[in-house]
Simulated assay, not measured.
Amino acid sequence: MASDIMVETRPHAVAANDIELSIVMPCLNEAETLAICIEKANRFLATSGVAGEVVIADNGSTDGSQDIARSLGARVVDVPARGYGAALQAGIIASHGRYVAMGDSDDSYDFEGLMPFVLKLREGYELVMGNRFQGGIKPGAMPPLHRYLGNPVLSFAGRLFYDAPIGDFHCGLRAFRRDSIMALGLRTTGMEFASEMVVKATLAHIRMAEVPTTLSPDGRSRPPHLRSWRDGWRHLKFLLTFAPKWLFFYPGAALAGIGLVLLIALLPGSLRLGSVTLGVHTLLFAAAGVIIGAQLMSFAVVARLFGVRERLWPTSPRIELARTWFSIDRTCVAGAIMLLAGIVIAAVALGGWAGTGFRNMNVEGTMRLAIPSVLLCALGVQALVTGFFTALLTSD
């Protein structure tokens, strides 16, 4: 006669120094699902032989979640600062394990399936991400907006901006070496914490891997804490903030390039394209494009240097090249030359007008001198300012 095998769901006491894996769950009023999550985590530790602990990072629950956690042998860390990222940061800091696995306490992830994560960590990987699109998303587990737009778009942006080998940037189930992630200096307190971890791990060249993970519908009767558009924007904002070449440099280079081509084509005179004539007004917009594009590219250089100074990301050969080329001496010389050239052209335009006795100005001819003059003066001042700013950022 067959009999059911019951596995003890309360962990045996393990000395802090002997803990290999800490399972950290953020919690804010999760009384409906917290117990099953802790029981699954305890069963995993009991059946796998992994020496571990369960840590509940409580964000101020008022439904008795703390008592539920303690009754099942979990360690509760009270986190006064609200936010998904704030709770997880506190839980990671308080954990004792060499490795940390983090996952939501809404029963959407199976904590009994952590062994593939642990094996990857033992192989030497420092961050192991779950991939829900490989492991499977059960019906009703993820809203269509997140499944077909939000997660794919943001994950694609992350791979494009950072060349990260991750297909599911926002999977809530992941595991990592505690010391490696602590060294990244993670700061965000909201849902964008998930993106920050992957972005900074990529910038720090941490070894990463993915394992298939199944996502199930959560077991709560109330709506989730996640707010689709607000939190999606916070993720995208973070991805752009830490990618100055995509936010500033590439758009700036494209805008300046188009403006410069039009500028060269229109300086000699108007250009006719079929039934459309591009004249001095187009020349004005082309010059504006060059100015704005150059400003964006200079922002990219300044942002990269600032990031290195503040240890937001490590330096690189390109950053060191920018540091060399945007020295205060070079930018001052280049800025002075452009500024002087702009003043000379302005003087020529003024001289031409003076030749008429300051009457009967040839507006189009004068504008073809005035626009390059303004452009060169603006670029010259911009180069001077950028040079002094980069010198401030690179000073010891």
Rank of each mutant, 00 (worst) to 15 (best):
D4H: 13
V7I: 10
R10T: 08
A13I: 15
A16P: 15
A16G: 10
D18L: 11
I19A: 02
S22C: 12
I23Q: 06
V24Y: 07
M25W: 07
M25Q: 09
P26D: 03
C27H: 02
A35N: 09
C37V: 08
K40G: 05
N42T: 03
F44P: 03
F44Q: 05
T47Q: 09
G49N: 02
G52M: 00
V54F: 11
L72I: 13
G73K: 08
A74Y: 08
R75G: 03
D78M: 10
P80A: 06
G83W: 03
G85Q: 01
V100C: 06
F111P: 05
E112C: 10
E112A: 09
M115K: 10
M115G: 00
F117T: 04
F117S: 05
K120T: 01
E126Y: 04
E126T: 09
G130R: 09
I137K: 14
P139A: 05
P139Q: 06
A141K: 10
A141G: 01
A141D: 08
Y148T: 07
N151C: 06
L154F: 04
D163Y: 11
D163G: 07
P165M: 11
R177D: 03
T188N: 07
M191Y: 10
E192W: 01
A194F: 15
M197C: 12
K200I: 03
T202L: 03
L203T: 02
M208I: 13
A209W: 05
T213M: 11
T213L: 13
T214Y: 10
P217Y: 08
R220L: 08
S221K: 15
P224H: 12
D231V: 02
W233D: 09
L236R: 04
K237A: 12
F238W: 09
L239C: 01
L240S: 03
P244D: 01
F249E: 00
P251L: 08
L255E: 01
A256D: 02
I258Y: 00
L260H: 06
L266W: 06
L267Y: 05
S270A: 14
R272M: 13
R272A: 15
S275R: 15
V280K: 00
V280I: 02
A288L: 14
G289K: 00
G293L: 02
A294I: 14
M297T: 04
S298G: 13
F299V: 07
G307Y: 14
V308A: 00
R309D: 04
E310L: 14
L312R: 10
P314L: 04
T315G: 15
T315V: 12
P317T: 08
R318T: 04
R323Y: 07
R330Q: 00
C332L: 15
V333M: 10
G335Q: 12
A346D: 12
V348T: 13
G357K: 09
G357L: 09
M361P: 04
M361I: 15
L369V: 11
L369A: 11
V374L: 13
L375T: 05
L375V: 00
L379V: 02
G380M: 12
G380I: 11
V381S: 05
A383P: 04
A391K: 14
L392V: 13
L392C: 06
D396Y: 01
